[in-house]
Simulated scan of single mutants.
Amino acid sequence: MLTNDHITLGPVHENEFEQMASWYVHESFGRRLDARPLQFKTADEMKKWWTGSSQQEYRFGIRLKETNQLIGFVEMDGILWNHGTAWVSIAIGESSQWGKGYGKEAMECCIRFAFMELNLHRLQLTVFSYNEPAIRLYAALGFTREGVYREFIERNGKRYDMILYGLLRSEWASEKTFSL
């Protein structure tokens, strides 16, 4: 369930929080992930965030199967168990691994886990309109564009929308064949 052709999802180890913090040095990483101003992270801050998860959050490191290298993470948070909904996000931190399809594989695993293991009904996410690779990814995964927060964010003197996407379990299941 937490593995695909080239990646696996799993824990992040104590000695990897420094690596995760280094991803925030890259402006394009932080600006795709967060609406807040670019802020560098320390290994201690990353560890506190990672280990501070609750019953409303699931976080997984994304690892390359071949080398076991940590290249990013996926997160489901804000889970409302009574409604079966959650927010999902993904980040490939290692820029050398961008554009290779690992994000899609990781999201496929995350979606499978959410719908088949956690029995959730709906996943949702937001993305900034300038993040065209992510928008293409979410469309390829079957997410539906549901709304727009117009001119939500300003970057380098220009306003950008934040787009809301959603995926229902029934929509996802209609596209899949299962073998247990």
Rank of each mutant, 00 (worst) to 15 (best):
Ile90Val: 15
Ser22Lys: 14
Leu167Glu: 05
Lys176Asp: 04
Gln39Tyr: 12
Met20Trp: 04
Cys109Tyr: 07
His121Val: 08
Asn119Met: 08
Glu105Val: 04
Ala43Ile: 08
Phe178Met: 06
Thr3Lys: 14
Thr42Val: 10
Leu9Ala: 11
Asp77Glu: 13
Met107Phe: 13
Arg31Asn: 13
Tyr130Ala: 03
Glu146Arg: 10
Ile71Ala: 01
Ser53Trp: 10
Leu164Asp: 11
Lys48Asn: 13
Cys109Pro: 06
Val88Ile: 15
Arg122Met: 08
Val127Met: 06
Pro11Thr: 08
Trp172Met: 08
Ser54Trp: 02
Leu38Met: 14
Asp161Ala: 04
Gly72Trp: 05
Gln39Trp: 06
Phe17Glu: 01
Ser129Leu: 03
Arg63Pro: 00
Gly147Asp: 09
Tyr138Met: 04
Phe40Ala: 14
Asp77Arg: 13
Trp50Met: 07
Thr85Tyr: 03
Glu154Pro: 03
Glu75Ile: 12
Ser95Met: 13
Leu168Thr: 07
Gly101Trp: 07
Tyr160Pro: 07
Gln97His: 12
Tyr160Phe: 15
Glu16Pro: 01
Phe73Val: 01
Thr85Gly: 02
Val148Leu: 05
Phe143Met: 09
Gly30Gln: 07
Gly78Phe: 02
Leu9Ser: 08
Val25Ser: 12
Asn82Cys: 04
Phe152Lys: 07
Ile71Pro: 00
Arg122Val: 05
Gly10Lys: 01
Tyr149Val: 07
His13Thr: 08
Glu151His: 13
Ile163Lys: 05
Asn15Tyr: 10
Ser28Asp: 14
Phe178Val: 06
Trp98His: 10
Phe73Gly: 02
Leu64Met: 08
Gln69Trp: 00
Arg63Leu: 00
Glu57His: 12
Asp77His: 15
Thr3Met: 13
Glu175Ser: 13
Glu75Phe: 01
Gln69Met: 00
Tyr149Pro: 01
Met1Asp: 09
Ser170Lys: 14
Phe152Tyr: 12
Lys41Cys: 02
Gly72Ser: 06
Thr85Asp: 10
Val74Trp: 01
Phe60Leu: 05
Trp98Phe: 06
Thr85Arg: 10
Leu168Pro: 10
Cys109Ser: 11
Glu132Leu: 12
Gly101Phe: 08
Ile92Tyr: 04
Glu154Thr: 15
Arg112Pro: 01
Glu94Ala: 11
Gly78Glu: 13
Ile163Val: 14
Glu117Gly: 01
His121Ala: 03
Arg150Asp: 00
Ala86Trp: 01
Val12Ile: 15
Ile111Ser: 05
Asp77Tyr: 14
Arg63Glu: 00
Ile111Pro: 01
Asp34Cys: 09
Cys109Asp: 06
Glu16His: 00
Ile90Ser: 04
Ile111Met: 13
Glu75Pro: 00
Arg145Gln: 15
Asn68Leu: 00
Met20His: 03
Gly101Cys: 07
Thr51Pro: 03
Leu137Ala: 12
Asn68Ala: 03
Leu64Trp: 00
Leu118Met: 15
Asn156Leu: 09
Glu105Tyr: 09
Tyr24Val: 03
Gly93Ile: 01
Cys110Phe: 12
Thr177Ile: 12
Lys41Phe: 05
Ala139Ile: 09
Pro37Glu: 15
Tyr24Glu: 10
Ser53Glu: 11
Phe73His: 12
Ser95Gly: 00
Trp50His: 11
